[in-house]
Simulated scan of single mutants.
Amino acid sequence: MIDLPIGTKFYIGNRLIEVVEDMEKYLCSDCVFRFNIDVPCEMFECYKYVRKDRTDVIFKEVEE
């Protein structure tokens, strides 16, 4: 699984995605991977108990 630091930005197709802290705790409905059929969310570490920085994160689509 991939553990990306908070603030990391990357493209999936033509969408720019940023790793952001999950302030709502486990609110997967705000994560871009929730309904993404091209990239399964299971390939990214998002829960604090498995991340190196011990912070819950979600992945948000952002503007360039």
Rank of each mutant, 00 (worst) to 15 (best):
50 V>Y: 08
23 M>Y: 11
58 I>Y: 02
28 C>M: 08
51 R>M: 04
24 E>D: 11
25 K>P: 01
36 N>Q: 09
7 G>N: 11
58 I>L: 12
64 E>N: 14
52 K>T: 13
17 I>E: 00
26 Y>N: 15
16 L>P: 00
46 C>P: 00
32 V>Y: 14
19 V>I: 14
64 E>V: 09
17 I>M: 03
15 R>Q: 12
11 Y>W: 10
64 E>R: 14
14 N>D: 15
59 F>M: 05
6 I>S: 06
2 I>Q: 10
3 D>H: 03
32 V>C: 10
13 G>W: 07
63 E>A: 15
46 C>Y: 03
26 Y>K: 15
23 M>R: 15
40 P>M: 06
12 I>G: 05
27 L>Y: 13
14 N>F: 08
18 E>D: 06
30 D>M: 09
31 C>L: 04
19 V>L: 07
3 D>K: 03
9 K>P: 00
21 E>M: 13
53 D>H: 08
34 R>D: 05
38 D>R: 14
25 K>F: 11
41 C>E: 03
11 Y>M: 13
48 K>V: 00
18 E>G: 05
24 E>S: 12
24 E>A: 14
17 I>A: 04
50 V>M: 09
12 I>M: 10
14 N>S: 15
40 P>F: 07
41 C>F: 05
47 Y>H: 15
44 F>L: 14
32 V>M: 09
21 E>C: 07
27 L>A: 14
9 K>E: 12
48 K>F: 07
42 E>P: 03
9 K>S: 08
62 V>N: 08
35 F>H: 13
